[in-house]
Design a protein around this nucleic acid. Sequence first.
DNA 1: AGACCCAATTATGGATACAAAATAAACCCT
DNA 2: AGGGTTTATTTTGTATCCATAATTGGGTCT
Lengths: 229, 229
Amino acid sequence: MSSSGQHVLAVVRRQILSGARAPGEKISEVAVAGELAVSRTPARTALAALEAEGLIEKRKGRGYTVRSISQSDVANAIAVKAALESLAAKTLAERGLNAETDAALCRSIAVTQAMLEGDAPVTEHFETYHEANVLFHETIMRACGNDLIAHAFERIAMLPFAALGALSFEATDPRRERMRLTVGHSQHVIILDALRKRDAGRAEAMMREHSHATMNYGELFSRDLGRAE
Amino acid sequence: MSSSGQHVLAVVRRQILSGARAPGEKISEVAVAGELAVSRTPARTALAALEAEGLIEKRKGRGYTVRSISQSDVANAIAVKAALESLAAKTLAERGLNAETDAALCRSIAVTQAMLEGDAPVTEHFETYHEANVLFHETIMRACGNDLIAHAFERIAMLPFAALGALSFEATDPRRERMRLTVGHSQHVIILDALRKRDAGRAEAMMREHSHATMNYGELFSRDLGRAE
DNA sequence: AGACCCAATTATGGATACAAAATAAACCCT
DNA sequence: AGGGTTTATTTTGTATCCATAATTGGGTCT
């Protein structure tokens, strides 16, 4: 797209995800155009893209509103994520790993392994862990041979995932955080083993479990908010 | 929504799906704007939406091109469709059916049941069957309580599905066509039974099988054609 | 006093004009 | 003759203007 349009898109998206724009808040083209000192044209494209991403909703004649995320939205997002990622793992297991994919997954696992073997509080290296985690999941998504999976995944509302990310940062207990990362790491190891052995069923099941694990921690932290699923 | 923009979107989409615009063909804003006698603004929004739908691809500096569908694209689309629809069926089974949903599913099944019990060639009522089929699947999608599933589904490239639809119309053998529809109908009945009994695992498995069945017939037909490219 | 209607403000969709970037081609220089 | 540079054309991104639709608020009529 454009330099200005992409800029507006990035800024408003960050505003929404950071909570600077509260859920239910009204957003109009003229407003964002005025705030960011651009014309209405890039503002329009940005809002259209934001609506496609599911972060904002369109009202018939009264601008856009920031979508509010409910507990069930988070559960729904996790369910879809689990379905798509387990499909990707299954597909990749059926096709088999090539050298680059295997190397990338190994690299990701090596990073988390080294981190967990160290004595330093894992919270200090959270960014590194997050990077390795993203590498693992994106590698499988990209290498599975089904572009539509990633396509569908990218089009899903990322709002619930942002809420989850914010939740992860609220980790207070370092020991529990270490446990959480250890479990995730072990699941990565198991998934890689299943992929190498081309055990599609095992890879699919373990990836589904792994995706759902994220939700379990989510409800663990937001216990006061009530039930999920 | 917009009158002109939506119009352009619908027209160009139909042109692509009908094959009026060949795969690989260049599409530019000015071209469609000129052909449809509209400004570049609605043409741009339409092309952006079309790109989001996956029907066209954007080249950095040389316009858009119609995406070409390969055999594996069809298989990929079916796999994602199966994953999402089986998730929807599972979710709906866990939540349980309400009165309206049950009634809608019953209505869909009643139509196909009546058609298959008659002696008339099923090809004559194909449009009716298709309607009932769409009603069945959309009802489950909408009633499952997870909007993100439908959201992701709608954002998937519909090109492979269009190819499948065209394939279905080329059914030559009436008896085989009747068999195909009978199997599909029976799977609908089984899925409804599983939903009513809140058997999430059975509903999920049967829906996955049902979605994959479409692909099997796709392979069956394309074997004769050989030109699925 | 309540309800309905009309008007005004606001917001969005569309059109045209303008500018910048990129690509392809042609021309010039070595 | 080949390569590099420049130019021109194509394409895209942005701004401003205009028209239309809708909602809200105020006024009037019953």
